[in-house]
Design a binder for these strands. Structure first.
Lengths: 132, 132
DNA sequence: AAAAAATTAAGAATGATTACTGTTTTTTAT
DNA sequence: ATAAAAAACAGTAATCATTCTTAATTTTTT
């Protein structure tokens, strides 16, 4: 397996992702970073997000809109997807540790982690609906 | 919105999906059904799986391997993804009702449902590793 | 049984992601 | 510090799941 060398691009991707609180796609990251790194390549963004995910430095969110999103916050938390506007929010709550245990009682493999996706309507969309 | 008429193809897709306990992709379903319906079209499978998902008759599983999988069992349960072989198992456990409540305490939108993905190593892969 | 509406088959189009190729950075070893 | 080796890059082509389009077929309605 290949050794991981330093690269300006990978560092920029990680820094940028950690600096924002939302959950951008590779394409969004690419477009934003391109302003300061005009010849950044899209492939580089995809490849490095993949590497960073393997290293556990970022988290890849798949059950959303078909496109992969990324989260620079790797602490244990869940995600909320608004079925109205599609936005992705963080949900912090402490049942996390319990879940693996609970699940282990009902499954005979080895469970090491989990991810919870919540669905519903976000605050902004709720407000919007009322106004109509 | 369009009225939903009966179609042999849609019925076959639903019946087939409900008859199996695993979580096939659209492509897998297409290949299997094609044996008995030689001119079934792939687009038809994709479109009907989408419709059936909207109707809540089947469940679409996204956070897996990049390809959408489908579940004919729509009762409340979680899924386990083996990081070794990629297989998807069902996990039945009763914390489901609690989760929405717990999460609601930490989020100010309206949460209506959730889906939990567990990750780890399945029984078969655990056994495999020991033998090496 | 004829008209209207919905669905299909088949294949083209899309779009996110991955793979490839030649060049540039980064590391290693002198 | 510098030359060789390894890894990463940019740019572009290729892939592959999924969606879209169109004309033909089924299903429903009258």
């Amino acid at each position: 397996m290949p050794t991981l060398n330093y690269s300006k691009q990978r560092q920029a991707i990680l820094d940028h992702l950690q600096s924002r609180k939302d959950h951008p796609t590779a394409e969004m990251i690419y477009h934003t970073l391109r302003k300061s790194m005009p010849n950044l390549s899209a492939g580089t963004v995809y490849r490095n997000l993949g590497l960073l995910t393997e290293l556990g430095q970022v988290k890849k969110l798949t059950g959303l809109d078909g496109v992969d999103h990324y989260d620079g916050d790797v602490s244990a938390h869940s995600h909320f997807i608004c079925q109205c506007c599609g936005k992705v929010d963080d949900v912090f709550f402490d049942a996390d540790a319990l879940l693996n245990e609970k699940a282990a009682e009902h499954y005979d493999g080895s469970i090491t982690s989990h991810h919870v996706y919540f669905y519903g309507t976000c605050k902004a969309c709720l407000k919007n609906k009322k106004e109509k």
